[in-house]
Amino acid sequence: MSGGVDSSVAAHLLLEQGHEVIGVFMRHGEQSPAACSTESTPGSLPIVNRLDHKQGCCTAADAEDARRVSDRLRIPFYALDLNEEFGQIMDYFAAEYARGRTPNPCVQCNNWIKFGKLFDYADSVGAEYVATGHYARIDDSSSEPVLLRGIDQSKDQSYVLFGIKRRDLSRMLLPVGGYQKPKIRELAAGIGLNVAEKKDSQEICFVTSGRYDQFVRRRLESGGESGDRSGELVTTDGRVVGRHDGIEGFTVGQRKGLGVALGERAFVVRIEPDTNRVVLGDRAALDASELTASGCNWLTDLPPEEPIECLAQIRYNAKPAAAELVVQAGHKLSVRFKSPQFGVAPGQAVVCFDGERVLGGGWID
């Protein structure tokens, strides 16, 4: 339970289905200043607002929201100290940016913690299932459960679940995946939860203040890595147009905050960690017709070695695109798109679908 509306309603729906529910909050140790709202309606619960205006999911303020919801639902509530585990995700996040890649800590959080450590905790208390408020669905109508997209296409989160273990699908419950988001808020309001109008999580939960590049620098320095990652800003034809303070301040496809004016729209086309150069170009330079990915995870039997048709999604908010998928040796894959895709970023996940079903995916090279 993150303290948000989705996990809160997920708990309510499970109770209605007759499950014995235990609420669990995962604390990562990063603190954000917060204040408790005094605005409430009769029969509703107070909500805790973060003063840094970032909407995360794992702060002490969110824990208070989750505890109040659990009290209202009359279910046990436990806050787990996962400082060390979240530390590994923060290290991954910083290391990827320092390598000129664009990390996705939410996917890794699902892999390592929400459907990793949380299963360990479930086993320790004799719980049969692990449930979350993700907008995705488990279809267990056949011999083996499969992961499907959520009904609400605008909120679908199946992309960030591609890395879970196939064997865990039989123990996963995703109660809100069969609903539209407005209905979830309506259900929350109907049972008197003030989180009904709480904003959705939109920020990296452990970056509680400042910018990503500042967090990365602090994290690397705390780990003894204080190398100079500043360098040149260059155009695709090799012309030097400026300097930057560190490659950790950039990601492929970025347009704003480049620190230089070229008289026309420019984007980050490539990041070169060996030279610390950030290469800028026009939008057309970001079109890619194919990609390779490593560290693959499959939620179905491995596709054949010959090409198969699929839909491939290259980032969370991207529209799935028609493509040809080829599975390669060494947990790798290649994808060839039917039409060029904008801003394929190394370090992000590519997830492959057969219609609504998640086949699997990997990390873009």
Rank of each mutant, 00 (worst) to 15 (best):
V5I: 12
D6Q: 06
D6I: 04
D6G: 04
A11K: 02
L15I: 11
G18N: 05
H19N: 08
F25D: 07
G29F: 00
S32T: 15
C36P: 00
G43R: 09
S44P: 03
P46R: 05
N49L: 14
K54C: 07
D65T: 11
A66Y: 00
S70G: 12
R72P: 01
R74L: 11
I75N: 01
P76N: 08
A79V: 12
A79F: 02
L80K: 00
D81R: 05
Q88T: 14
I89W: 02
D91K: 02
Y92C: 11
R99G: 06
P105C: 06
P105K: 01
Q108V: 12
N110Y: 07
K114L: 05
K114V: 13
G116C: 08
L118I: 15
F119T: 14
D120R: 04
Y121R: 02
A122P: 02
D123Y: 01
E128G: 04
V130A: 08
T132Q: 01
T132G: 03
T132C: 07
H134C: 06
R137V: 14
S143A: 14
V146G: 08
L147V: 07
L148D: 10
R149M: 10
G150E: 14
I151N: 04
Q153C: 10
K155M: 15
S158F: 01
L169T: 11
S170V: 09
S170D: 09
M172E: 05
M172Y: 00
M172W: 00
M172D: 05
L174R: 00
K181V: 06
G192T: 10
L193R: 04
N194Y: 05
Q202C: 12
Q202Y: 03
F206D: 11
G210Q: 07
L220I: 14
E225F: 09
D228C: 06
G231T: 10
G231L: 10
G231P: 04
E232G: 09
L233H: 06
V234N: 04
T235F: 00
D237L: 12
G242L: 10
I247G: 05
F250N: 03
G253N: 03
R265G: 15
R265A: 15
R270G: 09
D274L: 13
N276H: 08
D282F: 01
S289E: 15
S289M: 14
S289H: 10
S289Q: 12
L291P: 01
T292N: 13
C296A: 12
W298V: 13
L302Y: 05
P304N: 08
P304A: 12
E306V: 13
I308N: 08
Q313L: 10
I314F: 00
I314M: 06
N317G: 07
P320H: 05
V327E: 07
H331P: 02
H331S: 15
K332R: 15
P340G: 10
G343M: 09
V351W: 02
C352Q: 02
D354C: 02
R357A: 10
V358K: 01
G361V: 11
I364K: 07
I364W: 05
D365C: 13
